[in-house]
Amino acid sequence: MSNVTIFYEKSPVLCIGEEQPKNCFTELQVLKGHFDIVRFLVQIDDFRFASAGDDGLVLVWSVETGERLQELRGHSQQITAISTVSCGDGFTSLITASSDRSLSLWDPDTGNRVQTISDLQSSVKCLLVLERLSVWLSGGEELCVW
């Protein structure tokens, strides 16, 4: 079982003993939901973030409470990249890539998969959204502009 842990900064004390740095963060809560390694965390807005990893799941969480808000299922293998994309009117979508050689566009409010691009030539390893140009890029064996 893999967990997501939220840390918050506490005091500004920097050192204890012989130049040993003091951990200035306190673990507040361990968020449970993934059953394999979490590799990615991405901020959706001021109140939510998403986690993704080797279990093929994307989980949407409340920053304030740690509550799991959505579970996005659809990839059959590990998530290899995740990014957010603004769709106008303050709405943000999630884009995920997977070793199953597919890309998915998700609505984090409902948990619904809006669109899927499948049967890619290879696994996508990275994503970049260029908001101003209204395009996004995926990289793996090929570099694609969408």
Rank of each mutant, 00 (worst) to 15 (best):
P12W: 03
W106Q: 11
F47E: 10
S62A: 07
G53W: 02
S86N: 10
S102G: 12
N112L: 14
L94Q: 06
T96E: 02
E71P: 04
V4F: 11
K22D: 07
I95D: 01
W61V: 01
K32N: 14
F25D: 03
D45E: 11
K125L: 13
S123F: 00
G33C: 13
L103S: 10
A81Q: 03
F40A: 01
C15Q: 11
W106F: 06
D100S: 09
L120C: 12
T84F: 02
T80S: 15
Q70W: 12
Q121D: 09
R48S: 01
K10C: 02
Q78W: 01
Q43K: 15
S138N: 11
T26R: 15
V38C: 13
L137Q: 12
L128R: 13
L130V: 10
L137E: 07
D46R: 09
N23K: 11
S102P: 08
L72D: 01
L69V: 05
G139A: 14
D119A: 11
D36L: 10
V124K: 01
T5Y: 11
E27N: 13
E27T: 09
S104D: 09
E19C: 05
T5D: 10
P21V: 10
N112G: 07
Y8W: 01
L105C: 05
G56V: 08
S134L: 12
T92G: 01
S118A: 13
V4M: 05
I79H: 04
E64M: 12
G33I: 08
V114W: 00
W136E: 11
S123A: 05
R73T: 06
S51M: 05
D89V: 02
V63W: 08
A97G: 03
D36R: 15
V114G: 00
A97P: 00
T26I: 14
G17V: 03
K10W: 01
T65W: 15
V30D: 13
D36W: 00
V129N: 05
F7A: 05
S99K: 15
D46Q: 13
R73K: 12
A50E: 12
G88W: 07
L69Q: 12
A97E: 00
V63C: 04
T80V: 09
G88F: 09
L57N: 09
V4R: 06
Q121F: 00
F35A: 10
T96S: 15
V58C: 14
I95C: 01
T116H: 07
G88L: 08
Q78P: 03
I16E: 14
L130E: 15
G17Y: 03
Q78V: 07
S138C: 15
E67H: 15
V13K: 05
F40C: 03
H34G: 06
V63A: 13
H34Y: 06
E9N: 03
D119H: 14
K10G: 03
F91M: 04
I117G: 00
E64P: 09
E71I: 04
T96V: 10
G139R: 13
T110H: 05
I117S: 04
A97D: 00
S76Y: 00
V4E: 08
G90Q: 06
L105M: 09
L69P: 02
V38Y: 07
Q70H: 12
I82Y: 00
